[in-house]
Simulated scan of single mutants.
Amino acid sequence: MIDRTSEVVPCHLDDFGWFNAADACYYSMLDPQPPSTDAAWQGRYPEGAVYRVICVDRVPGTNGGWAWLPTPPPGYGGISVTPAQLASRAVDQMALAGPAIGITVPPERVGLVGVPVWLWTEVTPTTWGPNSATASVPGLVVTATARVTQIVWDMGDGNSVLCPTAGTPWYEGGIESPTCDHIYDQPSFEQPNGAYTITATSTWDVAWSGGGASGSLTVTRSSSTTVRIGELQVLVTN
């Protein structure tokens, strides 16, 4: 119960929602939310949410309606975050990581100029997806699902490779990767520590829904390794 101007009123009513002492109105989040084209969103969809408002001590005809709010109003079930903010918390719970890099030239070996270097990532929930998590506060639950849509490989020689798949692990007898590889045209001996630094950046698409709202967000994660590239020396004798 909340004491407002010497009058005790319920904090929550099943038919009205949660009481906001700042304006003497009850708020309940619409479920489902109005279509994204509805004027109630004021052009801000999918941020925030639309609420039904009932004001108990207003002049008849001015006692509420629908209202868009960027965050839940004071007193709303203890909720202090929007569905979109809660989706970000769900993403944090997933522990998404950069690619688990696989290449045909491990650190103990030296690759050759002109020979394809295969590029791939181990496919797991944290390196490729799908990966789902749920975050909640009293009165609001949001579930998010993340999937990688592409990996951009910075090869360290001024070139990058965009691959829309996880790549193909090398197999015995393979020459060119069927999905993702790169050919170096210069050796790496002039690079720091005599090796090219490869940085792989994955782009995660996250779809979320909850609290009568839905949306998407994009996050990236990166990881790195090195590769040494040499030249095949041909010895000519007379």
Rank of each mutant, 00 (worst) to 15 (best):
W18R: 00
W18I: 03
W18L: 01
F19N: 00
F19Y: 15
N20D: 14
N20V: 05
N20G: 02
N20M: 06
N20S: 07
A21E: 06
A22P: 02
A22H: 12
A22N: 13
A22M: 08
D23H: 01
D23V: 10
A24F: 08
A24E: 12
A24I: 09
A24C: 11
C25I: 07
C25Y: 02
C25L: 07
C25K: 02
C25V: 10
C25F: 03
Y26F: 09
Y26L: 01
Y27N: 01
Y27D: 01
Y27M: 02
Y27P: 01
S28W: 04
S28Q: 11
S28Y: 06
M29D: 06
M29C: 13
D31H: 03
D31E: 09
D31L: 04
D31A: 03
D31V: 09
P32S: 03
P32Q: 04
Q33Y: 04
Q33L: 06
P34Y: 00
S36K: 11
D38A: 14
D38E: 02
D38W: 02
D38K: 01
A39E: 12
A39V: 08
W41F: 01
W41C: 01
W41Y: 04
G43R: 07
G43L: 10
G43N: 09
Y45D: 00
P46H: 03
E47K: 07
E47G: 08
G48F: 07
A49S: 15
A49E: 02
V50R: 00
Y51M: 10
Y51V: 06
Y51L: 09
Y51A: 07
Y51E: 11
R52E: 15
R52S: 13
V53M: 07
V53I: 14
I54L: 11
I54Y: 05
C55E: 05
V56E: 05
D57W: 06
D57N: 13
R58Q: 12
V59W: 04
V59Q: 13
V59T: 15
V59G: 07
P60K: 13
P60W: 07
P60N: 08
P60L: 12
P60H: 03
G61P: 09
G61V: 14
G61E: 15
T62Q: 14
T62C: 01
T62E: 02
N63G: 15
G64K: 01
G65H: 07
G65D: 00
G65C: 05
G65F: 10
G65S: 02
W66V: 11
W66R: 15
W66T: 13
W66N: 14
A67G: 02
W68Y: 08
P70Q: 05
P70G: 02
P70H: 07
T71H: 08
T71D: 11
P72H: 05
P72S: 09
P72G: 04
P72V: 05
P74M: 14
P74R: 15
P74S: 14
P74Q: 10
G75Y: 07
Y76T: 15
Y76L: 11
I79Y: 03
S80D: 15
S80Q: 15
V81K: 14
V81H: 09
P83K: 04
P83A: 10
A84T: 06
A84H: 12
Q85G: 13
Q85N: 06
Q85V: 03
L86Y: 13
L86S: 15
L86F: 10
A87S: 15
A87T: 07
S88R: 12
S88G: 11
S88F: 12
S88A: 15
R89N: 14
R89G: 11
V91R: 04
V91E: 06
Q93F: 05
M94K: 00
M94E: 00
